[in-house]
Design a protein around this nucleic acid. Structure first.
Length: 475
RNA sequence: GCCCCCAUCGUCUAGUGGCCUAGGACACCACCCUUUCAAGGUGGCGGCACGGGUUCGAAUCCCGUUGGGGGUGCCA
């Protein structure tokens, strides 16, 4: 695949998000692509932020991008990371480039208003601007836009993922470079910045593909060799529409805040449109960095599947060592969202249950609900579970039997299990049925971590007390 | 309307002319394991959009159809 590549020096991959107050998961994937390639090639990941008026007043938006990148392992302190740069820093250069284009005959001024253009389009039956001012020789002036003079012929965009894409130049209208007020347009600013930063690879979402021929023409008119293009497919929702902020959960920060692991998120994102060699999709970033190739990226849009993400996350949660897991859980075990007070929480107790919790959660946010009964004075009772469990006389009897038995049994999980078994047997209940009333009385729920381990940890006094409370409640 | 892109199980993918009676993963179903719930194990369901070519041979190459998506701003 040989489009003109900036041959001098190491490759430079630019990632140019526009700040919008959150970081899009699609953007995250594109960033990861750029990052993997830059890292492996010994090149550079250039972060250039598209500066808008609104973003300028909200520096936290830019910080949000940097934080989000850091979360997925794109570390600003890494020497591969260059930036952030802001588009506005180059505004003078943008205008200068436009004027050069005008002097060289690659651009011309036009005084048509949007309404006039529409009228002409309507009259001719062809939509869009028809090149009316091309040869009118207009001088610069207030209200006059500078338009690019699209040359005749064919523009071939040589794209690393899509191959050779041909555009007939007569289907590309003479697009605006400078607005009537003299300010540069995005397309121009982008090219000028890329060229002056000697960007060699532009890897971005497919929605930009129609812009590529225009930009390539601009690179050439400016006297530069165009970069290597790669337009990667977009991420879509179940309706096969491009993920949108309005309808879909697209903020990377939200996944972070809901307790998804960055490792899982990164891995999942990379399997959308690409697959690592071999038997499994669960692979560490190091392997992805070594193996990822744009040439192997799929051509069609990929559905962002929450269920599969959840499966990946569970997979990664279970891979954690106990220490790592406890560390990762910490933010979810403290703070306002948690039902217990700081004094009630005991990390040592949590640690001893950690392994049992690990196989039972999807995200870290699921952790508190599994262990809250260990720290609260009284369990949070799930009414539906309670009603269902104590609907039978045996269940009520079982509770009383366990209360009596637990008074004197040796306080280990193994003995507690045997004691429960015996009480159940006397009532014709198997262990599965026998443990239920005890579980609901002590934990408030029908589901949770293995019961007898929890009872042992809780201690005889608390357990007996909760059994009593439950019996009173039944009366 | 015009331009461009895309098309393998429900979903994400492997597959680059014979190794494919199409492989894996998620989801789903069943069974096993089991103190609940998970996790784990085993098995099952399920796909090359359609029609023409090219070829000894096509999921793979070509053309068309259909169906999706994106772009068509003095937005970025």
């Amino acid at each position: 695949m040989s489009s003109g590549t900036n041959s001098s020096g190491a490759p430079r991959y630019r990632f140019a998000p526009s700040p919008t107050g959150f970081f899009h998961v699609g953007g995250a994937r594109t960033a990861l692509y750029n990052w993997a390639l830059a890292k492996r090639s010994g090149g550079t990941f250039v972060l250039r932020i598209e500066d808008t008026d609104e973003a300028r007043n909200r520096p936290e938006w830019t910080q949000g991008i940097i934080d989000a990148l850091a979360w997925i392992g794109i570390d600003r302190d890494d020497p591969t990371f260059e930036g952030p740069y802001f588009q506005s820093e180059y505004a003078t250069a943008h205008v200068a480039a436009a004027e050069r284009l005008y002097r060289d005959g690659h651009a011309y001024y036009c005084d048509l208003t949007t309404e006039q253009i529409q009228e002409r389009a309507k009259a001719s039956g062809r939509p869009g601007y028809d090149g009316y001012s091309r040869d009118r020789g207009l001088e610069p002036g207030p209200g006059r836009v500078l338009r690019f003079r699209v040359p005749e012929g064919v523009t071939i965009v040589d794209d690393l993922v899509r191959g050779r894409v041909e555009f007939q130049n007569d289907t590309i209208e003479d697009f605006v470079l400078l607005r009537g007020n003299g300010s540069p347009m995005f397309l121009l600013a982008n090219v000028v910045d890329d060229a002056s930063m000697r960007i060699s690879h532009v890897v971005r979402a497919e929605e930009h593909l129609p812009n590529a021929p225009k930009q390539q023409l601009l690179w050439q008119a400016l006297g530069h060799t165009p970069p290597t293009w790669a337009h990667v497919p977009v991420l879509v929702n179940e309706q096969r529409k491009k993920l949108s902020k309005r309808r879909d959960k697209v903020a990377l920060e939200q996944y972070r805040d809901e307790g998804y692991l960055a490792t899982a998120m990164i891995n999942y994102l990379m399997t959308l449109g690409w697959a690592p060699q071999g038997e499994t999709e669960i692979v560490p970033w190091s392997r992805i960095q070594d193996e990822f190739r744009l040439e192997d990226v799929n051509h069609s849009p990929a559905f962002f599947d929450l269920k599969k993400l959840a499966a990946f996350n569970g997979e990664y949660v279970r891979m954690l060592s106990v220490d790592e897991f406890v560390d990762a859980c910490r933010p979810w075990l403290h703070g306002d969202a948690v039902p217990w007070s700081p004094e009630q929480f005991d990390e040592a107790v949590f640690r001893s249950m950690a392994e049992l919790v690990q196989t039972r959660i999807v995200t870290l946010a699921d952790v508190p609900a599994l262990v809250d009964f260990m720290f609260l004075d009284a369990p949070i009772v799930d009414e539906a579970a309670w009603t269902k469990t104590f609907a039978s006389a045996e269940a009520v009897a079982m509770l009383a039997a366990a209360r009596t038995s637990f008074e004197s049994v040796e306080w280990t999980s193994e003995s507690l299990k045997i004691a429960t078994e015996e009480c159940g047997a006397a009532l014709g209940l198997k262990l599965g049925k026998a443990q239920a009333p005890v579980r609901v009385a002590v934990t408030g729920r029908t589901v949770g971590p293995p019961l007898f381990e929890a009872l042992e940890l809780l201690g005889r006094e608390i357990v007996l007390d909760r059994l009593d409370v439950a019996r009173h409640r039944l009366d």
